[in-house]
Nucleic acid binder design. Structure first.
Lengths: 156, 156
DNA sequence: AGTTTAGCGTGCGCGACGCACGCTTTTGCT
DNA sequence: AGCAAAAGCGTGCGTCGCGCACGCTAAACT
């Protein structure tokens, strides 16, 4: 592969990782869905939808957030009725976080919005470019330059 | 295009936009290059390398940061000798920010590290997938679901 | 039975951010 | 020419999110 390919990706990544990019996207996705659902709380609720009911610590591990951060964000979601706390019947210490029906609905709306935005921007792409891109992006994110393990860059 | 394609991209985006993802990447890139260069200051210095000498306000517009935020981050970079402030000869009010030689060198190192990480992870990709992916990512970031203008999602 | 570990919520300090202020210089209008 | 409005800068200050450390309760282990 050519060096320019790396540079091209690096550039795109730079703009993609901006705070404002994330903020803008989440603002669009959660627009009109209430104060509680925003850039910070969405990942918690969405993650919880994936994992199913679980502890704050486990959810934190799943979405790479500190346990206490999850707790605080969950407070907001609970106050808004999007998330429910219930004692773990199997463990007296634990508190299970669970998405309420209302919360699930909002997550569904948000995800549809996101999918729609993505699909709209990919509509004009020729041939199977969109599908190929999706697979490549998935792979890139999973195995890409964000890995935790070693991979000392060394830079020559 | 299929709905699953949109979902697939949405998932990847979710993990890509995590704070920890950005933090981890920048930690790798700036490792061992001094305290001053980190996740926060790097975009400023890198952006300034692109724009050439300019005011804090202009740089802020270029990298989508508040003017005062640029100023504060520039303070750190200036103290470390990676950035220089000089009065604008054409405007008595203005202060030009300019990258020093040392700063330019560090940016170059960082960019090479990033490119190397990217290229390494793309090495095993078959055929021209990497080049295609690069172009697609570029286009996706530019025209994608992050646009500022309208594009009311509507969701239904 | 007693100790160690795991889980939870919260107080607190730290750091980043952006608004608003005061100041200087330029611009533009009369 | 002269004065008002605007543009540029740095900084004080309030706000907010984060994560560590603490105290507490309950499970697990010896």
């Amino acid at each position: 592969m050519t060096t320019t390919t790396g540079q091209e990706i690096a550039d795109a990544l730079g703009t993609l990782l901006r705070r404002t990019t994330r903020a803008r996207l989440y603002a669009h996705l959660t627009e009109g869905l209430g104060e509680a659902l925003d850039e910070l709380t969405y990942p918690v609720l969405s993650g919880l939808t994936r994992t199913g009911p679980c502890s704050a610590a486990d959810l934190g591990r799943a979405v790479e957030l500190d346990r206490t951060t999850v707790t605080r964000r969950a407070d907001r979601l609970e106050r808004a009725g999007l998330l429910r706390r219930e004692p773990d019947p199997a463990d007296g210490r634990a508190t299970l976080l669970a998405v309420t029906d209302e919360g699930r609905e909002l997550i569904q709306v948000t995800r549809q919005r996101l999918a729609a935005r993505i699909e709209r921007s990919l509509d004009a792409w020729p041939g199977t470019d969109a599908e190929v891109f999706a697979r490549c992006l998935r792979r890139f994110v999973d195995e890409g330059p964000f890995a935790d393990d070693g991979a000392d860059a060394g830079q020559g």
